[in-house]
């Protein structure tokens, strides 16, 4: 399993411009975040979907070492939000498949409890909406991704995207309006 050191190393390499580092980094983080989510659920079985804290916990466990630099944190949180999104969307799609009777075993164990039933559809809808947004404005899409899937604060989003807090706030507003329209058919 990934050691914290591996991830920091890969993070550095990626920052330095090595594209292959990202390919190795993602699956490692995917697995680690999945573990953390499972642990989190075991200790707080009543938690409904709430990524707040998970991504931060991952940061503390995987990257926060004496040698870690400030930039590492921003990068990590941004990446972790993306990974978290993949995790949750994959999971939601599997649940959807299960509901349609394509086999109970499609979703295993306590992972079944990550997302409440009535959050499965919205998760997928959100993901699809964000994909559409990314096609026209990548940064706004990332801001929403980090906000929803990563549970990042405004400051952290600014850190991750290397922009000012004011920019994040401004762009977030338009992004939310766009999202409200996209999801907007039912007011609930």
């Amino acid at each position: 399993m990934a050691e914290p050191g591996d991830i920091t190393l890969l993070l550095r390499r990626w920052e330095e411009g090595d594209p292959r580092a990202l390919d190795q980094l993602m699956p490692l983080m995917y697995e680690r975040l999945r573990q953390l989510a499972r642990q989190r659920l075991r200790s707080e079985p009543d938690a409904s979907l709430n990524t707040t804290g998970l991504v931060h916990e991952a940061y503390l466990k995987l990257v926060d070492t004496p040698g870690a630099r400030v930039q590492d944190r921003g990068h990590f949180l941004g990446l972790a939000s993306r990974v978290m999104r993949h995790l949750l969307v994959d999971h939601a799609r599997a649940r959807q498949a299960t509901k349609r009777g394509l086999g109970i075993a499609a979703v295993n164990l306590d992972e079944a409890t990550w997302i409440p039933d009535d959050a499965v559809e919205p998760t997928i809808e959100l993901d699809e909406a964000l994909q559409r947004l990314a096609a026209v404005d990548e940064r706004r899409s990332k801001i929403l991704e980090q906000r929803y899937f990563g549970g990042l604060s405004l400051e952290e989003t600014a850190e991750a995207l290397h922009v000012s807090l004011a920019t994040v706030k401004r762009e977030l507003r338009a992004a939310r309006a766009w999202l409200a329209v996209e999801l907007g058919r039912d007011a609930s």
Partner: peptide, 17 residues
């Protein structure tokens, strides 16, 4: 949408905390 974003995104906001 911006004027009503709080309401319209209420559900998704709640789901994702």
């Amino acid at each position: 949408a911006d004027a009503n974003a709080g309401t319209r995104l209420g559900r998704i906001d709640a789901i994702f905390g």
